[in-house]
Amino acid sequence: MGDSGGSLTSRSATGLRGLMDAVGFDDVDEAEALADGWQVSDFAEARPRSLGDLVRRTGAPAVMVTFLDSDIGFVEAVTPGGGTWEGLLNRTMAESYGIPLEQFPVEPAVTGALAWSTAAGLKGDEELIRKTLTGSALFASELSALLSVALGIPGAQLPEPDDDEGDDEE
Rank of each mutant, 00 (worst) to 15 (best):
T118K: 13
A120V: 09
G135I: 00
T134V: 13
E127H: 08
L122D: 09
A145F: 13
A137C: 08
K123A: 14
L122R: 13
R130P: 01
E126N: 05
F139P: 01
I129C: 08
L146V: 09
T118V: 10
L138G: 10
L128W: 00
E126W: 04
L143D: 01
E142A: 14
A145M: 11
A140Y: 03
R130Q: 11
L133D: 01
S141Y: 11
W116I: 03
A137T: 11
E142I: 15
W116A: 02
F139Y: 14
D125N: 14
S136C: 02
T132V: 14
G135C: 04
W116E: 04
G121L: 03
L133Q: 01
G135L: 00
S144H: 13
G121Y: 10
A120E: 08
E127S: 13
G135P: 01
G124M: 10
L122Y: 09
E127P: 00
A140C: 12
K123Y: 00
E142G: 12
L128I: 04
R130M: 07
L128Q: 14
S136V: 04
R130G: 02
A120M: 05
A120L: 02
G124S: 10
G124K: 08
T132P: 00
G124Q: 09
I129R: 03
L122T: 11
A120P: 06
T132C: 15
A119H: 04
L122S: 07
A119Q: 12
A120S: 14
L143G: 01
S136M: 06
A140G: 08
K131E: 14
L138C: 00
S144M: 10
R130C: 06
A140F: 10
L146S: 14
W116H: 15
S141W: 07
E127A: 15
A119V: 04
F139N: 02
L146A: 15
K123W: 00
L122P: 11
L143V: 10
K123M: 04
T134E: 05
T118N: 06
T132E: 03
L122I: 10
D125M: 05
S117P: 07
F139W: 11
T132W: 02
L133K: 02
D125P: 06
E127N: 11
W116V: 02
G121K: 10
T118Y: 02
G124V: 12
S117E: 04
L138F: 12
D125C: 09
E126G: 13
A119R: 09
L122V: 07
E127F: 04
G135T: 00
A137D: 05
I129S: 02
A140Q: 01
F139H: 09
S136R: 06
G124R: 08
L143M: 09
S141H: 07
A120T: 10
G124F: 09
L122G: 08
L143P: 00
S141M: 08
S136Y: 04
T132L: 07
S141K: 03
T134I: 10
E127V: 12
S136W: 02
A120D: 07
R130W: 07
S117V: 05
S136K: 05
D125S: 12
